[in-house]
């Protein structure tokens, strides 16, 4: 299956293999890794938590949205959960398309959407404490209790 939430380390090649095909001329991957320094603060490790069944549904939805916009694209996404050390891989997004521009655009679309609608949370453990990371997009909260249509559809 092309969309997965995994407790095990992600093998990049396995995600790529899901999208390579005879009509693909370009495959882009996005690999999110755990960075040590953020704005001068040192991260020791991270914990990722997911609402797994819904997270998989939302990853599938992102795949459908990509298919609507880029009909020739094939997409695969695996997100890790659990404890991650510095340089560990949190997410791998692979997108194949016949031509390269679409592979970049569709891949970027996927990561932005993940940060909007996929129920996965990151707890940063710093040297001096820990915190659940809020909305990284720094958009306003959700006064209606769910993402606005504009968030979902564009």
């Amino acid at each position: 299956m092309n969309y997965d939430i995994s407790k095990e380390p992600i093998v990049i090649q396995e995600v790529i293999d899901k999208v390579v095909n005879r009509n693909a001329g370009a495959v882009t991957t996005f690999i999110g890794t755990v960075r040590e320094m953020t704005k001068g603060k040192k991260t020791l490790f991270l914990i990722y938590e997911a609402y797994k069944p819904m997270a998989i549904k939302k990853l599938e939805q992102i795949g459908s949205e990509i298919k609507e916009r880029w009909p020739d694209a094939e997409t695969a996404i695996t997100h890790r959960v659990g404890k991650l050390e510095i340089t560990d891989i949190a997410v791998v997004i692979a997108v194949s398309t016949p031509h390269r521009n679409d592979a970049y655009e569709a891949n970027r679309y996927a990561i932005e959407r993940i940060k909007e609608i996929v129920p996965i949370w990151k707890k940063e453990h710093w040297e001096d404490g820990e915190t659940w990371v809020g909305n990284q997009l720094e958009t306003v909260p959700y006064p209606k209790g769910k993402p606005e249509e504009v968030d979902i559809d564009d």
């Binding site: 990722y48 949190a90 993940i114 996929v118 990151k122």
Partner: peptide
């Protein structure tokens, strides 16, 4: 209940 997400 789904706090602001922070995957990726």
């Amino acid at each position: 209940f789904i706090p602001p997400v922070s995957g990726g």
